[in-house]
Design a protein around this nucleic acid. Structure first.
Lengths: 341, 341
DNA sequence: CTGAAAGCGCTTACAG
DNA sequence: CTGAAAGCGCTTACAG
């Protein structure tokens, strides 16, 4: 493709097409001020030269980036993959590019990743279930549009999109109550994901109380097996297990199996996220579904408005506005783990 | 932080410090041509202004990017997370930034992601186990330094870093042979990951032959359970199961359990990748470990040489050179799944 | 409809 | 050790 030394530039195109550089720029960016056939000729030359716009130069000149940063806490949860995919689609649809940096439990690594994002002057950052302290989010929100998914807004300029945790808890608890469970036992991760964990725990506690069920909590580490075993031992019957997410819940399945208790009768298992793990024949988990598509769509929406990247009819930028929150309704998908076979 | 409207620039610093813009640039980039206290003063002013270099502008001016793109096939395998983390460290160590784009099974999405990377003029791209046709990789390799991990180089300028698949197969087969298994059954994914699958299959076949064992192959979809069940039914004893990776192998564990055959005696299970799943108490899989740290380190190494980003003593760029390959030794970590309890 | 010119933020020879 | 100047690739008023 490249005729000479390196990647073709607009100057190369201009020279080859015998027009000015500015005309090339206008034609390529689809400005209506360029004659149709002029544009076509320029586009052909560009294509023949293997031209590809230099995004850095472009955003430098137009003082507006088209890159959105996504910060995931880790890759150990299929939910994150789905969210990433949905965000990828939502951004692509708007001509934006999504770059993901994989967070870490180590604060230094995370901050380094965020620095990188700020360094390239991204148009905005979306954080999925960040364990960052609220103040950190607030501070970042002062520098660049920020939206958190799956967590409450800490205020400031930080927008939030999440599922209604209270509603989810009611769905779960009511389902288990309808199955005649007497006790709800929530098993959540000890260290990671503090914020979401506490939130979930509180909501479940409230829902259990409202439904007149006993409620207890157990911690687990990377493996939810031991905690599950302990819960089963202590509650000989009618136990409704609620595990923080699918990834952890699959540890409980073999334990349940070996306990030889009657699934759907004296014990039922539910979890959150409804990822591909929940679908697997061997697991078949009842799980709270989060509408990733919508979550992603709304997150990008909020970001764009704040960044002034909205559809052109947008009268003004929202950049000055305070935090906005979008709360979506969850859905419970019931499967073998709570219904027996 | 920001005094006026927006993010501080070097001009702001120059003005505030009463020096020229070029001096600011030199001081900030740590040039030795700047007096120590001048530099310090400038750095202080920069810090007080909350200055952060504009990476786009910087790489535009120096005609050299510090961003490395990583293309993962998906996020459904913990191995990918580990590789991403290792690459993140390897790049950070060199002052480079890693941006990952999550591939997809849909070619359009993948190509779009690659376009984005090329659009920001990344210094190089590393692909992990890409399912892309060799020609596509070759073509991308003509535009930018490329390194593939976990796959043979297609030639051209595409470098490769991978584990010795033949050696891995021998480790697995010899281990199973030592346990007196008579048949090796390899279960691999049907659609995805073609290249790596065929490679693995062939290597195992050869190793089995060398060891004088029977060898057979079974396909599976997203769930390796059914294929495992079929294999168990057809081979009443001394069956050595080799599953393509940990993610799939965990499906086999419950099947094995329900088959009630004697683990480590008449059936043994091994897999690849040795991720956190293999460690889980409930699974405890014997698995082939890939040295992610080394893989990542070497990949970044190759990329930097090709991009002319090597340590300053580097005499020349390797950009013109043909494909290089680094082949690393795998290791087999034995656990319950092949040893019984 | 088209071109000349200035500028985005930063870097890098080149003179002092 | 420091500054003036040109340029990276692109965009955008501003004149024609």
């Amino acid at each position: 493709m490249s005729t000479n030394g390196h990647a073709a530039t607009q100057s190369d195109i201009a020279r080859a097409a015998g027009v000015s550089r500015s005309l090339v720029s206008l034609a390529l960016s689809g400005s209506p001020k360029v004659a149709a056939d002029t544009r076509r000729r320029i586009q052909e030359v560009a294509a023949s030269l293997g031209y590809r716009v230099n995004v850095s130069a472009s955003s430098l000149a137009r003082k507006r980036s088209t890159i959105i940063g996504l910060v995931l806490p880790n890759l150990r949860n299929a939910f994150f993959e789905q969210i990433a995919a949905c965000l990828g689609r939502a951004t692509a649809r708007r001509g934006l590019t999504l770059f993901v940096t994989v967070g870490s439990d180590q604060p230094e690594v995370l901050h380094q990743a965020i620095e990188s994002l700020l360094g390239v002057r991204v148009a905005g950052i979306v954080f999925v279930s960040p364990w960052l302290p609220g103040e950190d989010l607030l501070a970042i929100g002062e520098e660049v549009p920020v939206c958190v998914i799956g967590r409450r807004s800490p205020g400031g300029r930080v927008d939030s999109v999440r599922v209604d945790e209270e509603a989810a808890a009611r769905l779960v608890v009511d389902h288990l109550a309808a199955l005649s469970m007497r006790t709800i036992c929530y098993i959540g991760p000890r260290m990671t994901d503090e914020a979401s964990r506490h939130n979930r725990e509180r909501s479940l506690a409230r829902a259990a109380e409202a439904a007149g069920l006993d409620f207890e909590v157990r911690d687990c580490g990377e493996d939810a097996g031991p905690a599950t075993r302990a819960a089963l031992n202590e509650h000989p019957e009618a136990l409704g297990l609620v595990i923080h997410n699918d990834v952890l819940a699959i540890d409980a399945v073999p334990v349940l199996r070996e306990s030889r208790r009657t699934l759907g009768d004296d014990v039922a298992l539910t979890s959150y996220d409804n990822t591909y793990l929940a679908l697997r024949e061997e697991f078949s988990l009842t799980s709270v579904d989060q509408p990733e598509d919508l979550l992603g769509e709304r997150a990008v929406d909020l970001l764009c408005r704040r960044a002034g990247l909205s559809p052109d009819d947008a009268q003004e930028t929202d950049s000055g506005t305070g935090a906005r929150s979008v709360v979506l309704a969850p859905e419970l998908v019931t499967r073998t783990s709570s219904l027996g076979r």
